[in-house]
Structure formats: C-alpha cells, structure tokens
Simulated assay, not measured.
Amino acid sequence: MQLLALLVFAHSAVAQQPTAPRDTSFTTYSAYTKAKKQNPAISIARPTVPRSVQKQMNVAYCTQGTHALMLDVFYPKPSRRKERPAVLLVHGGGWRSGDRSQHVPMAQQLAAKGYVAVTAEYRLSTEAPYPAAVQDLRAAIRWMRANARTYGIDTARIAVWGFSAGGQLASLIGTTNADPLYETGNCYPTHSSSVQAIVDVDGILAFIHPESGEGDDRKNISAATHWFGSPKTEHPELWQQASALNHVSPKTPPILFINSSVDRMHAGRDDMRQQLSKLGIYTEVHSFPDAPHPFPLFNPWFEPTLNYTVDFLDKVLKKR
C-alpha cells in the first residue's frame, strides 16, 4: 500500500503542469458520424426538456491548481417533497476526451423523473493522470452533499452514473467508498463522497483481464496507458488498483450494467456479478446486442437506457 501511495503521488504531481490543449477527438457528432455508417437509422438524442426541470449551469465545484472544475445541475421544481435522490453523471472519452455536456439530455430527463442530476467535468489525462479524475469526481459528490439544501438533495441517496471511461470511473468510485487514496484535496473535506448506487454504461471493470483490450500499445498507445502514464507491464499494480472488480466487498452498493455489443467495453462484468451475487448485493444487466459503443447518446437506445436507469434507481434509492 505504501508503494502504491508513492506511485500515485508521483503521478499526481503531473497535475501541477499547465493544462494541455483539449483533446476533442470524442464528441457526440464524431461518434454519431462513425456509428451511422453501420447504423443508418440512428439519430442524436435531443429529447424535449420538460418545463418542470430547472437548471444551474457552470458552477465551480472545486479548483485544482488554476483549473476551476465545473458542473451543471438539473433538478425538479420545488415541491412538498423537500429531499430527492441525486445522480452524478460522468462522461466518457477514454479518460482524455469527451465533455460533460454530452449527458445533459440524460440529466434533464432524470430531473423530470424526480432526481437531482449533476453533470461534472474532471481532469483528463492530457492534464493529470490517474487518480486525479477519481479524486475530482469524489469532490463533486462532496459538493452535492455540501449544497444539498440548495437543490433539495437527500444526502443518503446519491448514485453515480457513467458511460465508457465514465462507467469505469463510476464503478471505481462506488466500490471504493471511503478509500483515503481518493479522498484528497481541500474541497468540502468534511462531507462524504460515498454513493448508494452505481450505473455502469459500457465501462470496463478490470483492466488486466482476458476480455480487456486496454493496454494493447502495439499499433497506438491505448487510452488507459495515457491515463496511467505507463504501460501495464511497468506498473501493473496501478492498473489493478483502478479496476473495480478488485474492490468488491460487502459494502459495495447495488449496481446496474447497461451494455452494447462490444464485449471488451465491459470486461470483468460477469466476474463482478458473480462476486456480488455471493455477497447478496443486488445487480441488474441489460444489453443491446446490436448497439455501437456510444449508444446512450443516440436514438433508439437513449430512451430505454433512461428507463432502465430510472427503474433501477427507483428500486434501490427511492423511499417506499
């Protein structure tokens, strides 16, 4: 553990470097253009925003160095029910690209269903390596609890939802509740960053696993190698440490897996479900056999993804 802490500290030191130019290789439009070649009937999901949904945009939740990290909040209009469950949504993009705005449509629809939904940015690998992204998102959860009264958040009912790299981050956050490795910084340190439910949308659960394609640098340096700052052959302990599969315990919250047809994007899922089943922890899995990896951004998969998410969160978070 001491060696791991030293390695993480050394990697975190990179976070003090100036912010690199933003990697825009993964956008909703670029993903759509690519996916449409094999799925000509798809369209970008832009559902109508219900009038009941309020928003607060571009809120700074934590400052790392000179980078003020931002989030957006979507929430139902006030009602007699003062406290509502909340969801932090985490975007994908290989830990180096993507943007929180990609899941604004999902956040808006979750707010219409009675949830306080937050989309947060985090430091990407072009700026800071692992575990900076995990630490940032934990700070976002602490911000949610610190501002619970403003937005009507029930601090005992917070979930984390993530797509692709965001799904990996969501699963790691949920399986490492209270782990001091990820509880660094001065942003709302008196508040908890624990979550009570996880939704992993096509996020990897194990980096060093027969099903995983991460770390194959023969043609190009993989996204995970960029994020960890070194190949898995040099520091496999970091790759293992960041794998949610290796953190399953009796304290792991319920988890929903929503997956595409790309098996390597959810490497370790079945092994994780087996472990959780033995511990009596509730899980669900829903798959779209013909869907491309970025399916939650597009119709016809957006609505069923929303429905699976709401049904699960209603089951494990909402008070009866």
Rank of each mutant, 00 (worst) to 15 (best):
T48S: 13
T48D: 12
P50Q: 05
P50I: 04
R51A: 13
Q54V: 02
K55T: 11
K55S: 15
V59L: 15
C62N: 13
C62Y: 10
C62R: 12
Q64C: 02
G65C: 06
T66H: 12
L69H: 04
L69T: 05
M70H: 11
L71D: 07
V73K: 01
V73C: 02
F74H: 08
F74C: 01
Y75N: 04
Y75P: 00
P76M: 03
K77L: 11
P78M: 02
S79T: 15
K82W: 03
K82N: 10
E83R: 14
P85K: 03
V87G: 02
V90S: 01
V90Q: 01
V90N: 01
W95D: 04
W95V: 05
R96L: 12
G98H: 08
H103F: 15
H103R: 05
P105T: 03
A107G: 04
Q109T: 00
L110E: 06
L110V: 08
L110P: 03
A111W: 05
K113A: 15
G114M: 00
G114Q: 00
A117F: 00
T119V: 15
T119A: 11
E121Y: 06
R123V: 09
R123Q: 12
R123E: 06
A128F: 06
A128Q: 06
P129T: 04
P129Q: 06
P131R: 09
A133K: 03
A133S: 14
V134S: 12
Q135K: 11
Q135G: 05
Q135V: 14
D136L: 10
D136R: 09
A139F: 04
A139I: 04
A140M: 09
I141F: 07
I141A: 01
R142V: 11
W143P: 06
R145P: 08
